[in-house]
Design a protein around this nucleic acid. Structure first.
Length: 252
DNA sequence: TATCCGTGGTA
DNA sequence: TTACCAAGGAT
């Protein structure tokens, strides 16, 4: 849920989710549509599908227990390097480089002396983070939490709260006089009129209904026929939408 | 590796 | 008002 989504928006959904499905087996036992519906407006609804698939895989491969090994975690649907490292570190106190957007920004500033990290994680960046990581698991896990939290609450992207920062004295970016970011522009994300907006609109109609929705309702939600029909079939192919009968659609 | 995958709060 | 951008992942 936290992938590319602010903590404050995740919290209420997360709490309801765990209340309903406290164990992987509980989630794996319900239809995928239930997960998509409970996902609400968190965005990137395919994550709901993948979380459901991960729960199913955990039941099948790991006897219903979230695995401790990075290799097992990263093999789960929707779990990449960051999430595998975060779970192994935070939940199991294993030693892993937890390199999320917050940690990357903290290291870019405090160590490298630049305002923002590069667009993609570089080898040098990973080596830097690895070299700073404490040797033993529990201490490394505390380090991971601390650096991430520092980035999330103090060393934030816009208007960092340097006056409240516990490591201002060793910050290379501060020492250099806070030079502005001079790298390539970080790509914006146009949204109006895009397939993403269209898909979101269509899925929203189905999510807000507890019964199959006639195609007419989708036409009302997105007038552009070519894009609407293409995105609708795309949603079906993704498994986010199921066609019910000849002329109706619903969550799977 | 560049691009695509939603959504909403904020300055 | 419009950008920015938020505990990334898959292809």
């Amino acid at each position: 849920m936290l992938q590319q989504t602010p903590v404050a928006r995740v919290l209420p959904v997360y709490e309801r989710w765990l209340d309903e499905w406290p164990r992987p087996a509980d989630l794996a036992a319900v239809p995928t549509g239930a997960a998509v519906r409970a996902w609400g407006r968190l965005g990137y609804p395919r994550r709901a599908l993948r979380l459901h698939a991960a729960a199913t895989a955990i039941v099948e491969r790991h006897d219903g227990v979230v695995p401790e090994e990075y290799a097992d975690l990263v093999a789960l649907p929707g779990v990449g390097d960051y999430t595998a490292a975060a779970v192994a570190s935070f939940a199991y106190r294993r030693r892993h480089v937890v390199l999320d957007t917050n940690v990357r920004r903290v290291l870019a500033r405090t160590v490298s002396g630049v305002e923002f990290p590069a667009n993609a994680v570089t080898r040098a960046e990973r080596d830097l983070a690895s070299g700073l990581l404490p040797d033993d698991g529990p201490t490394a896990a505390a380090w991971a939490v601390a650096t991430m939290e520092l980035g999330a609450t103090v060393c934030v992207a816009a208007s960092p709260r340097c006056a409240a920062c516990p490591v201002t004295e060793l910050c290379a970016w501060r020492r250099a006089g806070y030079p502005a970011y001079d790298g390539p522009p970080r790509r914006g994300q146009a949204y109006d009129g895009t397939d993403r907006q269209c898909r979101g609109r269509l899925l929203g109609v189905l999510r807000d209904s507890h019964e199959p929705v006639p195609h007419r309702r989708l036409v009302e939600a997105w007038p552009g026929e070519e894009q609407r029909e293409r995105c609708l079939q795309w949603l079906v192919a993704d498994g986010l939408v199921a066609q019910v009968g000849a002329d109706a659609y619903a969550l799977p």
